[in-house]
């Protein structure tokens, strides 16, 4: 996104809004990882404690999700930059 035509009051406002949204997005991402890894890794409810197998699965799942998310982010940024370049002011 191009904020260069914003004045300083507008840029300050946008920065605050973006910071707030990033916080919310991080929170939502966090709980979506928990939900996804719980759903994939836990299906035995004869005990309330995580088994070592379940725990390993959860750790790998969270790890993999972060790497997945980072990789999607990198591709997304590239493709978004391309789309912006080919259609100025529109994408």
């Amino acid at each position: 996104m191009d904020f260069s035509q914003f004045n300083s009051a507008e840029q300050a406002h946008m920065t605050k809004v973006i910071e707030k949204k990033q916080m919310q997005d991080f929170m939502r991402m966090y709980s979506s990882v928990v939900e996804r890894c719980f759903n994939s890794c836990c299906s035995d409810f004869t005990s309330k404690a995580l088994s070592s197998k379940e725990e390993q699965c959860v750790m790998n799942c969270a790890d993999k999700f972060l790497k997945h998310s980072e990789r999607v982010g990198a591709r997304f940024a590239e493709l978004n930059a391309d789309a912006m370049g080919s259609q100025p002011g529109k994408h």
Partner: peptide
């Protein structure tokens, strides 16, 4: 952000095996 989140979710479903025997891609 909405599009990004949908891509993360859809491509996770399409590409990542839910067995999680390792943490690396």
């Amino acid at each position: 952000t909405d599009v990004f989140n949908r891509i993360v979710s859809s491509c996770h479903n399409k590409c990542i095996s839910p067995r999680y025997s390792e943490g690396d891609l």
